[in-house]
Amino acid sequence: WKVTVKGVEYTFDNPEEAKKFAEELAKKKGGQIHYKDGEFQVH
C-alpha cells in the first residue's frame, strides 16, 4: 500500500496504517486525500 505525498512515496504493509498516515498528513497540511490505483495520494 502506497501513500504518495508531493511525489514522495511511502510504503506500508497494512492498508489501515497507510490510510491513517494519509489522513494525519492531510489534516496537518490541510490537503485532500485521493485514493487511486491502490494508493493514497495527499495533495
Rank of each mutant, 00 (worst) to 15 (best):
E17D: 13
G38P: 05
F21T: 01
K36N: 11
V42R: 02
K28I: 13
E16F: 12
K2Q: 07
L25E: 12
K27Y: 09
K2V: 11
L25V: 13
K29T: 15
E39A: 07
K2G: 03
V42C: 03
Y10P: 00
Q41V: 13
G7T: 02
K6M: 15
L25R: 02
P15G: 08
D13E: 09
Y10T: 02
Q32R: 09
A18F: 05
E23S: 03
V3F: 01
P15M: 15
H43D: 13
Q32M: 09
Q41G: 04
K36H: 13
K29F: 15
Q32T: 14
F12D: 00
Q41I: 14
K2A: 03
F12P: 00
V8E: 12
G7I: 03
F12T: 00
H34G: 05
K20S: 09
Y35L: 09
K36Q: 12
K2E: 03
N14D: 10
G7A: 02
A22T: 04
K28Q: 13
K36F: 13
Y10F: 11
D13Q: 07
G31A: 12
I33T: 04
E16C: 14
H43P: 05
V5T: 08
Q41F: 10
E24P: 00
H34W: 08
E9T: 14
P15H: 15
V8F: 12
K6F: 14
F12E: 00
K36C: 13
E23N: 06
V3G: 01
K36T: 10
E9M: 09
Q32F: 14
P15V: 14
E23I: 10
L25S: 06
V8R: 10
E16S: 10
F21W: 06
E39D: 06
K20G: 04
A22C: 09
Y10S: 01
E23W: 06
G30P: 05
T4K: 08
T4H: 04
K19Y: 14
E24K: 08
D37E: 09
L25Y: 12
I33M: 05
V8K: 11
Y35M: 10
A22R: 03
K28F: 07
E24M: 12
K28G: 11
G31M: 14
F40R: 02
E39H: 09
V5C: 15
G38Y: 10
G30N: 12
V3M: 01
L25T: 08
K36S: 13
K6Y: 15
W1I: 13
D37V: 01
F21Y: 04
K19L: 14
K2P: 05
T4Y: 05
H43T: 14
V8P: 00
D13H: 06
Y10R: 01
Q32E: 13
D13R: 04
K28R: 12
L25P: 01
K20F: 08
G31R: 03
E23L: 09
G7Q: 02
I33P: 05
K6R: 11
H43V: 15
D13F: 06
A22P: 00
T11Y: 15
D13W: 06
H43W: 05
K29W: 15
Q32P: 06
F12I: 00
E9L: 07
P15K: 15
F12W: 01
G38I: 04
Y35W: 10
N14Q: 04
G30E: 06
A22H: 02
V42D: 05
I33K: 02
K29A: 14
H34T: 12
H43K: 12
K29Y: 15
W1G: 05
Q41E: 13
E23M: 09
V8D: 07
E24L: 09
F21M: 03
Y35E: 11
V8A: 11
G30W: 04
G7W: 02
E39F: 06
D13V: 06
E17T: 08
H34D: 12
E24F: 09
A18T: 00
P15Y: 15
D13P: 08
D37Y: 01
V3S: 01
K6L: 14
V8M: 13
K19G: 04
K28A: 14
P15S: 08
Q32Y: 14
V5N: 06
E39C: 05
P15W: 15
E17V: 07
Q41A: 10
K36Y: 13
G31P: 04
T11S: 11
K36M: 11
K2I: 13
D13G: 08
A26P: 01
A18H: 01
K6D: 15
K28D: 13
V5W: 15
E9V: 13
A26K: 04
K36A: 13
F40G: 04
H34C: 13
A18K: 01
G30I: 04
H43Q: 11
V8L: 11
D13Y: 05
T4R: 08
K29I: 15
G30C: 13
P15D: 02
I33C: 10
E23H: 05
W1P: 05
A26G: 04
Q32C: 15
K20W: 07
V5P: 00
D37P: 06
W1C: 14
F21V: 01
Q32I: 13
T11R: 13
E17A: 11
K28Y: 08
W1S: 08
K19C: 14
K29Q: 14
K28S: 13
A26V: 15
A22Y: 02
E17Y: 03
K6I: 08
F12V: 00
H43E: 11
K36W: 11
Y10H: 04
V5A: 11
F21A: 01
H34K: 08
V3D: 02
E24W: 12
V3Y: 01
E9Y: 05
A18E: 00
K29S: 15
K36E: 10
H34L: 10
K6V: 10
V3R: 00
G30Q: 07
N14K: 06
K20M: 10
Q41T: 12
D13S: 11
G31C: 14
K19I: 10
E16H: 11
A18I: 01
E23Y: 09
T4Q: 03
F12Y: 01
H43N: 11
K2T: 09
G30R: 08
Q32G: 08
K36V: 14
V3P: 02
G30V: 04
K19D: 02
G38M: 08
G30Y: 06
K2S: 06
